[in-house]
Simulated scan of single mutants.
Amino acid sequence: MPSRLILALALSLALHASLLLPPVFKANGPPRQPALEASLRLPAQAQVSDGEALLKNTLAVNQAPAAAKPPPPAPPALRASQPVAKTNVRREVEAAQRKLSPHLYYPPEAVARGLEGEVRLILTLGDDGSIAEVSVATSSGHPILDKAAIKAAYAMGKVNWAHSHELILPVIFRLE
């Protein structure tokens, strides 16, 4: 009997050693790749001149570009208010993005799957500056990123500096 016991012990040790020792040797092998890192950036400022069209006719192949017709002059009261309105909207969007950034997170599942995209939210504001409603104007194509952007927008709280009752807020998710 003792010889059978010794044989069983030897076989058990050999089996366990064959299962446990290869991972120990592999751990000292080639170095592992660094983990994925993600960060959020504010969108780049688009440089569009007032005379340049935002939409282009891409269907016309051989058409010569038509001469741009200058718009009729605006009344003096409107001329001064238009650039100020554009500047105010731009400032409100930039301020909203700064306030949104501490609340915004990149979902780990989206990072693992390598998902990227841009979500455009419509923030509906109450009279006291609180966020009454958040809806998706343009989806990123990935519901997980859309939900993360909506959750962060609600977490912003009050937006006391906004003069309008609706604000379109772009939220960009990019992996680097």
Rank of each mutant, 00 (worst) to 15 (best):
E52N: 12
P2E: 03
K69I: 15
R91I: 10
A46W: 07
R91P: 05
L40I: 14
D50R: 13
A17K: 01
E92L: 05
A44Q: 10
Q63D: 13
G51L: 14
G29H: 05
K151F: 09
E118R: 02
V159H: 02
A68T: 12
T87E: 13
L15E: 00
H16C: 06
L5T: 02
P65T: 12
L7T: 03
A96C: 05
A8G: 01
Y154N: 09
P76N: 04
H163K: 15
P2V: 06
P65D: 12
W161P: 05
A110K: 01
L175Y: 12
T124V: 13
A27L: 13
V89N: 08
R113E: 12
P22D: 01
P107Y: 00
R90H: 07
F173E: 05
G29R: 07
S49L: 14
R4Y: 01
V24K: 06
D146R: 02
W161D: 08
A35S: 13
L15C: 00
A44N: 06
L78S: 09
V93R: 05
G141S: 06
V111H: 02
T124H: 07
S3I: 03
E166H: 15
V171W: 04
Y154W: 08
V134W: 00
G51E: 15
Q63P: 09
A64I: 14
A85K: 05
N57R: 14
I168M: 11
L9P: 02
D50A: 14
I6W: 01
G29V: 07
A155W: 00
P71G: 10
Y106V: 04
P83N: 01
S39V: 11
L100C: 05
D146G: 06
Q82W: 08
R32Y: 11
R113A: 15
D50N: 10
Q63H: 10
A38W: 11
E133F: 06
K158V: 14
A148P: 04
G157Y: 04
G129T: 05
A110G: 04
S135E: 09
A27Y: 05
I122F: 07
R120N: 10
N88R: 15
M156C: 07
G141V: 10
A38R: 09
A137D: 11
T138G: 07
K56Q: 15
Q97T: 03
